[in-house]
Design a protein around this nucleic acid. Structure first.
Lengths: 417, 417
DNA sequence: AGAACTTTGTAAACCCCCTTTCCTAACCCC
DNA sequence: GGGGTTAGGAAAGGGGGTTTACAAAGTTCT
C-alpha cells in the first residue's frame, strides 16, 4: 500500500512555491498581482508573502501607484539575502555555479576530470574544490549559503543521498552525500540531471504554471523529465524519465545499455557524431573526441547552409520527432521543452524540424494541445535545477520550524482579547 | 496558467474513495480495519463511514468479537441500495452490464452492430435498448439506478459529454450524452475504454492502493491507462494514454492512423491475426473476420503445444515486451497490468513471455520496482470501469449537497449545550 | 483645507479537513 | 457485580484557505 498520502500541508507547500516562483519571475511585484497570477485570495498571498519576508527571501522595495487609492506595496527577491549552489557532475567535468536568490549566476567554477578519474573520492575532491572556489569568488559569507544541490547522472536515492548506480563510472551505491559532507558544511541535496532540468523548467522555464510538461534532455545522454499534475513525477523508485533507452528502431544500433535501437544512440551527442561520421567521414565538422566542438560545428554548418550539416540535423530531428511524438501521444502534455546543451547548440533549426516530425507522427488531439519549445533558460539548466533543489529544501526546512525564535511576534494584540 | 489547483476538499474526496474501495474489496469490515488499511485516523474513518451510511451505500451488518472488549461494528456494501450501469460501446457491439453496489453483475445485455451501422442515432438506439433491457432483467426500480457510465472509443470530452473523435465510425464532435439523455433518464458519465479499464484496476484490480501503475489494454485497439500519483492521469486534453500509436518499428507495418510500425499493428488483435496469417496462411486456428474466435483458438493452440500458436504468442509477447519496457523505463510504475480481452484470452503463456521480454529490454532499477500481472478482474473491465465512473459521479454529486434534507440529523445533543 | 472617494492590506471570523484526547458504551472475566 | 479491555462518539485543536470588516494611505472634488 504505497498510495500517496496527501495532507493540507502539501497545499501550503505548493502555494508557497508558487508565490515564490512568481516573485522570482516578476520582480518587483505587488500582492495584488500575485493573487491574480496564482488564483489565491489576497489574504493567503499576504500571509505567504509575510512568511517569505520573515525568511528574508524577499524584501519590500517601495510602492507603486494604484488608480486613485492607496499605493501597492512592492516586494522583490532579496538577492543578497542568501546564496544557492548548484553542482553539475557530468562524465567529463564538474561544473559548479553560485546563485543569488534571484537565481542569477554570481560565480562559476569548472573542473575537468581526466578519463581515469572515476573513484568517488576523486570526484568529491573536484566538487569540494569547485564549491570552495565559487564561495570565495562570490565573496559571500558561508552563513548565507542556504544549500548545495548536487546532480549526478544515473539512479539516485535522494533521501539517503546515495548514488545507486552511475553507468559512466560503474558506481554502485556510493554514499555521495556523506562523502561530500566531510568537505562541505552547507545543507546538501542530491538528484540527477534529468530531474534537475525538469525542475529548472518548472520553476523558471517553459513549464512554469503548466500542469503537464515533458522536458526532453539532449546531452551526451538523453532523458525526459516529466512534470505531471503540476509536480515532478519521480516514479516509485525515483527513476522515472529514463526515456533515452526507449526502443526507437527495433534491432537498431547497439546501445551501451545492452539493447538495440535506443533513442539515445540516435539523438544523443555521440549518436549524432556517429551519424555525421557515417555520412561524411572526412567532414571538417567532425572533431573526434570532442562532442561539444562537433555539435557546435554542426550548428555553424547549418547556419552556413552546409548540406551535410543540414542532413545530419534533419535526420536527428526525425528520430527525435518520432520519439517525442510517442511522448505526446502517451502523456498529452501542454508543452514539450527541448533542453540541455545539444538542444541549445542546435537551436531553432532543430526545433523547426522536430516540430514537423512530431506533427507527422502524433495524433491530432494530443498534438494540438502540445506546444514544442526550446528551453528559455539561458544558463546551464542542470546547475540551475540543482540549485533549485537546494531552494526547495531551504524553503521546506524553514517551514518545518513553527516556533521561530528571534523573529519578532507579528501580532501581540490577539493574545489578550 | 492551467496549473492544477488543489483544495482540501480533494483530500476528502480521495479519502472517501479510498474508504469505499476498501469496503467494497473487503466486505464486511470494521472501522478499525479501515483505519489500519487507509492510514487515516479512527475519527476520520468514522465520519466517512457515517457519510456512506447516510448515503445508503453501505449498511451496518452486525458485530465482530474483539479480544475481550466491546465488539467491533461491521459494515458492508449495501448491495441492494442502488445499481450502477456500465456501457461498453465497441466497434462491432454494445455491451451493457448492470451492477449492484458490490459491483457484482446483476444483468447483461449485448447488442451487435452491423458494419453499416455507424450513425450516432443507431448506436444510441442500441445503447438505449440494452440499458432498458438490463434494468428490466434485474428488476430494479428506476429510482435506484445511481448512474450510467458510458465508454466510447476515441477522444472524449467528458465534461461536455461529447465524442470528439471516434476513428472507427469517423465521428467528429458527436454530442453523445445529449443524444443518450433523450432515452435514458439516469445520470450519465462519458469517457473512453482506456480510462475505464484503468479506473477499474484502480478501484478493484491490481492497481488498488498503488501510487503509479500502467494498465495496458490489449483489445482490437491498444492503449495504456496511466495511474500516476494515485489517480488517473488524463493529460491536458483528456487524451493521455494513446500508447497504441507509439512507434515500435521505424518504417514498419502501416497503421490505420497513417504512420508505420505502431505498437497496435503488432499487438492488437488484427495485428496478431495478420502475423498468424503470414506464418501459416492455411492454419486452422485462423478465423477470418472473427478476431475473438481466432484469439481463442490461438490460446487453445498454445495450451495444446501447437508450434505455430506458440510462435505467434511468443512474437507478440516480444513486441509487447519491448513496448512495455519503454513504459517501465519512462514512468517507473509499481505495477503493469495486462487487461482487456486479448490479455484475458492468452493469459499466463503471454504473461510469462512478456515478463521475459520486458526484462531483456528495460533498465534494472525500474524493472526491479515493476511487477507485471494479468488483470485480476474476472468480468468485462470496460463495463466495470464505466460503472465506476458512475459510482465516482454519484459519490461526488452526493457530497456536493451539504444541506441534505430528509436525512435525520445525527446528533441533536450538540445544539443546546 | 477639508470632505469624499478609492484602493490596499491586515485582522477576525468562518468553513473544511484531519488528528488527538477524553469519555462513554459494551463486552469479558473473575 | 466490580475491574479490565476494546470500540466508537464527541469535543478540542491545529493546519489551510476564503470572506468580511476595517484601518491605512493615497487621490480628487468642493
Amino acid at each position: 500500500m504505497s498510495s500517496v498520502k496527501r495532507t493540507s500541508r502539501d497545499i501550503r507547500t505548493a502555494n508557497r512555491y508558487e508565490v515564490l516562483r512568481q516573485i522570482i519571475a516578476e520582480s518587483p511585484t505587488s500582492r495584488q498581482e500575485l493573487a491574480a497570477a496564482t488564483g489565491l485570495s489576497l489574504a493567503t498571498v499576504a500571509t505567504l508573502v509575510g512568511e517569505l519576508l520573515d525568511l528574508r527571501l524577499i524584501t519590500e522595495v517601495g510602492f507603486e501607484d494604484s488608480a486613485g487609492g492607496r499605493p501597492r506595496g512592492l516586494v522583490a527577491v532579496n538577492a543578497t539575502g542568501g546564496a544557492l549552489i548548484g553542482v553539475d557532475i557530468a562524465e567529463t567535468y564538474v561544473r559548479v555555479e553560485l546563485f543569488d536568490l534571484a537565481l542569477n549566476v554570481l560565480a562559476r567554477a569548472d573542473e575537468n576530470m581526466r578519463p581515469g578519474e572515476s573513484r568517488p573520492e576523486q570526484v568529491v575532491g573536484h566538487v569540494a574544490a569547485a564549491v570552495g572556489s565559487v564561495v570565495t569568488q562570490a565573496g559571500v559569507e558561508g552563513a548565507r549559503v542556504l544549500g548545495v544541490g548536487v546532480s549526478v547522472p544515473g539512479q539516485v536515492d535522494r533521501e539517503g543521498g546515495v548514488s545507486e548506480y552511475a553507468p559512466n563510472w560503474d558506481w554502485h551505491d556510493v554514499p555521495l552525500l556523506d562523502l561530500l559532507a566531510e568537505h562541505i558544511a552547507y545543507p546538501l541535496y542530491l538528484d540527477n540531471p534529468l530531474r534537475a532540468c525538469a525542475v529548472a523548467e518548472l520553476w523558471f522555464g517553459a513549464a512554469r504554471g503548466r500542469g503537464d510538461a515533458v522536458v526532453v534532455n539532449l546531452g551526451t545522454g538523453v532523458g525526459a523529465g516529466l512534470v505531471l499534475g503540476g509536480g515532478l513525477h519521480r516514479g516509485v523508485s525515483n527513476s522515472a524519465g529514463e526515456w533515452g533507452h526507449t526502443t526507437l528502431v527495433l534491432d537498431g544500433r547497439l546501445c551501451h545499455c545492452g539493447n538495440h535501437g535506443c533513442v539515445e544512440t540516435y539523438v544523443g551527442a555521440p549518436g549524432i557524431m556517429l551519424h555525421l561520421r557515417e555520412l561524411a567521414p572526412q567532414s571538417t565538422l567532425l572533431h573526434p573526441e570532442d562532442q561539444t566542438a562537433t555539435i557546435d560545428a554542426l550548428a555553424r554548418g547549418v547556419a552556413d547552409g552546409d548540406p551535410v550539416a543540414l542532413k545530419v540535423v534533419r535526420d536527428t530531428a526525425r528520430y527525435l520527432g518520432a520519439g517525442i511524438a510517442d511522448l505526446v501521444n502517451l502523456l498529452n502534455p501542454e508543452v514539450v521543452v527541448l533542453s540541455s546543451w545539444v538542444a541549445a547548440a542546435l537551436g531553432e533549426p532543430l526545433l523547426t524540424e522536430v516540430r514537423e516530425a512530431v506533427a507527422r507522427h502524433s495524433l491530432r488531439r494530443p498534438l494540438d494541445a502540445a506546444e514544442i519549445v526550446l528551453s528559455p533558460i539561458p544558463t546551464d539548466p542542470v546547475c540551475l535545477g540543482a540549485a533549485t533543489f537546494a531552494l526547495e529544501g531551504a524553503l521546506s526546512s524553514f517551514s518545518q520550524r513553527p516556533t521561530r525564535r528571534g523573529a519578532p511576534a507579528r501580532s501581540r494584540t490577539a493574545s489578550a482579547s
